Computed example of a mutant assay.
Amino acid sequence: MFHRSLLTLFGVLLLSVAGYAQQVFSKQEPFAYTYSIVARDPKTGEMAVAVQSHWFSVGTAVSWAEAGVGAVATQSFTNKSFGMRGLALLKSGKTAQQALDELLSTDEGRDVRQVAIVDSKGNVAAHTGKKCVDMAGHITGKQFSVQANMMVSDKVWPAMAKAFEQSEGQPLAERVLAALDAAQAQGGDIRGRQSAALLVVGASASQTPWDDRLVDLRVDDNPEPLKELRRLLKLHRAYDHMNAGDLAVEKNDMPTAVREYQTAEQAFPQNLEMRYWHAITLANKGQVAEAKKMLKPIFKQDPNWRTLTARLPKVGLLTVSAPELQQILSLK
């Protein structure tokens, strides 16, 4: 990541923090000048970290979280080890402040770091090094912290805090995105925007840890990363309904399956797959005529769905009679 163009761009900065930069910067510690939020939902116990920056794939460096443990944002001259080490300290029983203090105590680059932590009890701690690039600062509030560096103005992080507080009652993912939107409305990163990320984890670790990341979305390179991140969150919610529909089919609960597929389809009516499985569920429920109406334009737009339909009876995903199947496959 350490390119010549960045050396030119940040030459003045590097000189001003030479004593630190020469010691602490490496290819594994990118320049994540950015704004972010870590937060916990007091009702659900969910925890989140969300970030936007003018840096490629910012979510791979800044955002860290683990169900039942906490969330960490590490930025400015990013020390990525703070993510995993911070979570490990929380897991060992440290509070957010204790974990942060321990991370910084042995870090020679603490003056160019910006870090925020929220633990599973809602304790928060944040640090903005005295050599972070202006405008830089943070605000800690009730179970959240907002932080920013290299901003257009010092209005960015107060706007984030206000937006988060005023969005109380909404799902946590939507609340932290509201904070990012508020930051951008105040000008955000002085360099512009490029990438964003959203990570939400559960209140407690489950027996299926692969399911503990409730939302895990990244926009690695986009002229409107927050707009795209919101679109992806909406799509994520729609596919949650699709998954719920699939589960209902497994349980032979067709009314629930139809309801879930309809909800997903309404969110993204142009998504062929959502429309397709809704139609297949209707067919399995005996509403073949209605299913045919839905499948006809799908087959016309993409014939591969017709081919797939012919394969479904073999595995029990389409249970219509042979004549009904022929009617469906013969749609023009």
Rank of each mutant, 00 (worst) to 15 (best):
N222P: 06
A289T: 07
E168L: 06
K314V: 08
T309N: 03
R259H: 08
Q270T: 15
N149T: 12
Y239P: 00
K27G: 14
A88Y: 08
F82W: 03
H3W: 15
S81N: 13
L104P: 01
D134K: 14
E46K: 07
P225E: 03
Q28K: 14
L15G: 06
L217A: 10
L317P: 01
D246G: 13
S76D: 00
A185K: 14
K293Y: 09
E165K: 02
P255S: 05
R40L: 15
G11I: 04
R218P: 01
H236F: 06
A126M: 05
Q98Y: 07
V258H: 08
A244S: 13
M254E: 05
K293T: 14
G68E: 11
M294Y: 09
L180A: 05
A61H: 08
F25L: 15
A257G: 09
L9W: 12
G83W: 00
F25M: 13
L329T: 09
L295Y: 09
L312S: 01
D302R: 15
L87V: 04
R230T: 02
A18R: 13
Q143R: 11
S26M: 08
M84A: 15
Q23E: 12
A71F: 02
P223F: 10
A264H: 01
Y239N: 06
A99T: 02
D189S: 12
F25Q: 13
E250V: 09
F2A: 14
H236S: 11
S76L: 00
S321Y: 01
G137L: 01
F164H: 05
S57W: 03
N149M: 08
F2S: 14
A257V: 06
D220A: 11
A65W: 00
F31W: 10
S81L: 09
Q194N: 05
H54R: 13
F31P: 04
N271K: 11
V69Q: 08
T60V: 11
V62F: 03
Q262L: 08
D101S: 07
R230M: 03
D181M: 06
L232E: 09
D181T: 05
A173I: 02
Q114G: 06
L226M: 07
Y20E: 14
R4C: 11
A67P: 03
G137M: 00
S145F: 04
G141H: 03
T309M: 05
L312M: 08
P297D: 09
T95Q: 05
F25K: 13
T256H: 06
V124L: 06
P313Y: 04
D211G: 10
G93R: 09
P30G: 06
Q114H: 08
S330R: 13
L312E: 03
M135V: 09
P303D: 06
